[in-house]
Amino acid sequence: MNFPLVTLLGRMTISLLTEIGAVTSFAWTAIRQGMRPPWYSRQVLRQMLEIGYYSLPVVGLTAIFTGMVLALQSYTGFARFSAESAIPNVVVVSLTRELGPVLAGLMVAGRVGAAMAAEIGTMRVTDQIDALTTLSTDPFRYLVAPRLIAGVVTLPLLVLVADSIGILGGYLVGVYKLDFNDAAYLRNTIEFLQTMDVVSGLVKAAVFGFLITLMGCYHGYISRGGAEGVGKATTNAVVSASILILTFNYFITEAFFSR
């Protein structure tokens, strides 16, 4: 008997498991090779600059408007219950725990993940990665490991900046538009904020940094077929990184805050 739906589901499952296996193997190779010398510190610094410094404008803009909208929307909701004083708490907790790392992660996935996949993909289809090997340079050590390290180190720093700018956005709306007392707003923000809120956000950022750079490198590394292949690699890198960010965000939240 023929069950087309079962066949399709089976194929999709096998395909998904194969992809997960390939990504895990790729990540393991990169980590294993990255822990052995030579270490390319200049490559790490260059990638940190690319991921962190050059992402500051886009992440900063995202954070400030998110903080502002959060304050405004919280006000329209909480005013009904005369709970306006909770606005600073909502803004700071939402930003540090969730919105800071997730939005920064998604923006960096769009900007950096895509660029990485395009750069490494172009190197793949123009034989530059093979050229590295012929020059006795391991592509995993030279290309992949520095990007993974830079992603893990830099994204938490970027999220710290995003959290601060987002809180500033909430403060500006709270004080200058909603007529909060500025000292009271800041006091509420600081008193309600707990170390775990920030730590959980930074752990998420480090994991997202790893996932974004891993997806960018992986899809670029396996790209085939010229410009079309590089284009597909870029799309796949952004889509898969975004999905993984949202998925891992849930599990990390569960690990930190579920009772």
Partner: peptide, 28 residues
């Protein structure tokens, strides 16, 4: 022991010409 001239050149387009030629001596 090997050197290789690739069909499309395979030069590293993020590096200058001299850095491409000096890549092996410096990095390896």
């Amino acid at each position: 022991k090997f050197g290789m001239l690739f069909q499309q050149g395979a030069l590293f387009d993020s590096l200058k010409v001299w850095e491409n030629v000096a890549f092996g001596p410096i990095q390896s």
